[in-house]
């Protein structure tokens, strides 16, 4: 049987996490190809709708990466993200989507190692959960 390869949509902020992901590359660290990056200016740009849509379209996981609290390039964008993420988990539970498939992590531009580590661990986690059932079971 072919190995199951999850699809993880990753929203990375330009200033910290995307730069951290670039550093992981420059350092030639390895992580699975299930990590699919979309670069946004700030994690606060991420509308909860993007996350819900990703799931309904069939993504197996959604990862949001931002600057560490206090380090946001735009001063307070990641605080919005943090609150929105807490809300998103509630919305997911209400809709019957699996909130355990969501991940938020603060990764700075210097943390290439952390980006690779989180990518590896998160992919393993999603692999254990298996395919996202909401693509068949949820109709909104």
């Amino acid at each position: 049987m072919k190995e199951y390869k999850p699809k993880i949509v990753c929203f990375l902020c330009k200033w910290c996490t995307s730069a951290g992901a670039d550093l992981a590359g420059t350092s030639r660290l390895k992580y699975p190809s299930s990590i699919l990056p979309i670069r946004v200016m700030c994690s606060s740009r991420i509308d909860p709708m993007f996350v819900v849509k990703a799931f309904l379209n069939g993504a197996d996981g959604v990862f949001i990466g931002g600057c560490h609290p206090g380090d946001c390039h735009y001063h307070e964008g990641n605080y919005h993200t943090r609150r929105r993420f807490a809300m998103l988990i509630k919305v997911f539970n209400t809709l019957g989507l699996e909130s355990k498939r969501l991940k938020l992590s603060w990764i700075s531009a210097s943390e290439g190692t952390k980006f690779a580590k989180v990518s590896n661990e998160y992919t393993e986690e999603i692999k254990n959960y298996g395919e996202n059932p909401s693509k068949w079971n949820v109709f909104l």
Binding site: K7, V9, L36, I38, V40, D47, M49, F50, K53, A54, F55, N57, G58, A59
Partner: peptide
């Protein structure tokens, strides 16, 4: 939003 959603579609379909 439309651009980001189109990108999300590529990854998640």
């Amino acid at each position: 939003d439309e651009q980001i959603l189109n990108m999300v579609k590529i990854y998640s379909y």
